[in-house]
């Protein structure tokens, strides 16, 4: 029973529809919560208090108000823009983030699509984002956008290498590409999690994956595609209103995708840290989301601490540090698996 919805509704049209809509039901509130968290955490890190008025209690309704504002905004398409691509780009970016949710096992009883190539699928659909961003940058017909898009293409393509290599190391240990199986392989107490397994190799793998995932989601210190102080706003300079909101939404959706994947690969996914205590399908959702949120917090924390890399330094980090380390790691983990199982 990997998907309780298809279990009850069948694998037909209705079952598929409902199970494909559930991630959306999750993404929208999550994005709002994450935006609010980002506002508040950044504010408190900077000795401020952040939004305090909207919704009375600590400005909880601020993201809602922002979204409402963005929806109401006039939809401007630059005269010189390539209209079709310009309209399509935000949707494509969002699709890339959204489609990845299909393979994330939220609980033992719920995964959008329990495919055997789960993690491979996530890596593949995440790459859609590159096309969307390139389209956005090109179609805006703005030099800054184009520069931002070119940077993104270079960045995302290079960081897929270390992140895939890091994933590969876990896959070797788990012996499966299916995310549910990977979760199941880490059941029991928290010291069974892969982040502590084959110490320290999988821990280093986690660090590599985490850094690469920051780059893949264009989060600081790898936010050079947007780089508001350099490229004005990068590929979404010309976007406003709802289309801009889509980019925004996609960014936060992506943040959770990479955090959830990291939680599944390294932190036991839906497993309870305490053996069978508080485990089960419902608690599984809780554990996965809270593990994901902790990682999202670290992403936010880093963003408000670090300056931004330069393009060439980014490439240096990817090709000359992360990739060699990931390769050595794979070799070591592989050796370990072969020799000691």
């Amino acid at each position: 029973m990997h998907n309780f919805i298809t279990y009850y509704l069948g694998a037909g049209f209705w079952g598929s529809l409902v199970s494909s809509i559930i991630p959306l039901v999750f993404i929208l509130p999550f994005a709002l919560v994450a935006i609010w968290l980002e506002l508040k955490i950044s504010a408190h890190m900077q000795d401020r208090v952040g939004p305090m008025r909207t919704g009375r209690w600590h400005g909880w309704a601020q993201p809602l108000a922002d979204v409402t504002k963005l929806i109401q905004k006039e939809d401007i398409i630059p005269a010189a823009a390539d209209k079709a691509l310009y309209i399509l780009a935000p949707a494509l970016v969002f699709v890339g983030a959204y489609a990845a949710y299909a393979a994330i096992p939220f609980s033992p009883a719920y995964i959008g699509s329990d495919i055997n190539l789960g993690i491979f699928y996530i890596v593949a659909v995440s790459a859609l984002v590159v096309i969307g961003i390139l389209m956005a940058g090109w179609s805006s017909n703005n030099k800054w956008s184009l520069l931002g898009a070119m940077r993104t293409a270079a960045q995302l393509v290079s960081y897929e290498i270390p992140s895939s290599l890091a994933i590969l190391a876990v896959v070797m240990v788990a012996g499966s590409l299916n995310l549910n199986d990977i979760c199941a392989a880490q059941s029991g107490w928290f010291w069974n999690w892969f982040v502590f397994g084959k110490f320290p190799f999988l821990f280093i793998t986690f660090i590599i994956y985490f850094i690469a995932s920051l780059a893949e989601t264009n989060r600081s210190p790898f936010d050079i595609p947007e780089a508001e102080s350099e490229l004005v706003a990068g590929y979404h300079t010309e976007y406003s209103g709802m289309r801009f909101a889509f980019f925004y939404l996609a960014e936060y959706a992506n943040m959770f995708v990479v955090a959830a994947v990291a939680a599944v690969l390294f932190f036991g996914g839906w497993n309870s840290p305490f053996g069978t205590f508080l485990s089960g399908p419902v608690w599984g959702v809780f554990w996965l989301i809270s593990k994901g949120m902790v990682l999202v917090f670290i992403q936010i924390w880093l963003r408000w601490t670090l300056p931004r890399f330069r393009v060439d330094q980014l490439m240096y980090l990817s090709w000359k540090i992360l990739t060699p380390f990931a390769l050595v790691n794979i070799f070591a983990v592989g050796l370990w698996v072969v020799l000691r199982g």
């Binding site: 900077q46 000795d47 102080s229 601490t305 670090l306 300056p307 931004r308």
Partner: peptide
Amino acid sequence: YGLDIGAFTPFLFCFR
């Protein structure tokens, strides 16, 4: 300058 380089937090500490 920190803001130019991409670090937002030092900027606000300085302004504080």
